[in-house]
Design a protein around this nucleic acid. Sequence first.
DNA 1: TAGGCGATGACCT
DNA 2: GGTCATCGCCTAC
Length: 193
Amino acid sequence: MAPATPEDVAERARGLLGRVLHGHGVAVRITEVEAYGGVDDPASHAFTRTPRSDIMYGPPWRLYVYRSYGMHFCANIVTGPTDRAAAVLVRAGEVVEGVETARARRLGVKDPALARGPGNLARTLGITLDDLGTDLHADEGVRLGPPPDGAPPITAGPRVGVSKAADVPWRFWVTGDPTVSAYRRSPRAPAQG
DNA sequence: TAGGCGATGACCT
DNA sequence: GGTCATCGCCTAC
């Protein structure tokens, strides 16, 4: 088996676009993701191996959930290759199932914004730390649908909000999709150079 | 045990 | 488009 490369990681991230993520009565078509390369990506939680990031060193297609800013949950898909501890942050999606439930979870929010932004997406899907480690190929709980027939048009750009490796273009989104979140550079990231 | 910090969201202009 | 609120967790000591 050839050693995994950063290109493998990016390819797996792109492959998630257009797939449907089901969670707790709501399903979204993934429109925006960010790849986190793990062992040699300083922006990744797996860059330093800790009890928290240990799950990314495990088998792929597991859900990695973490809390951000104390109150928001973010949903990641561990993609492997296992020797890289790579994962993909699901940043945005379009609700395709359970719209009523999604609206109830996000009162006062317009449809395209229901799952815009990682925190909002997790909330819309009802994902919490209880879902940490879920096997996405299982029949219950959070699960991932099959790849779409045709690959959607994809645009790449720098990742949002990361303070390290902020210029690596490992954010991928469906070109022109209204549910994609706006780009914002981390206030902690050094000036582009 | 204490401190730093974050892959954010919401609101205001 | 810019600014600020927020707090639990992880890491280091």
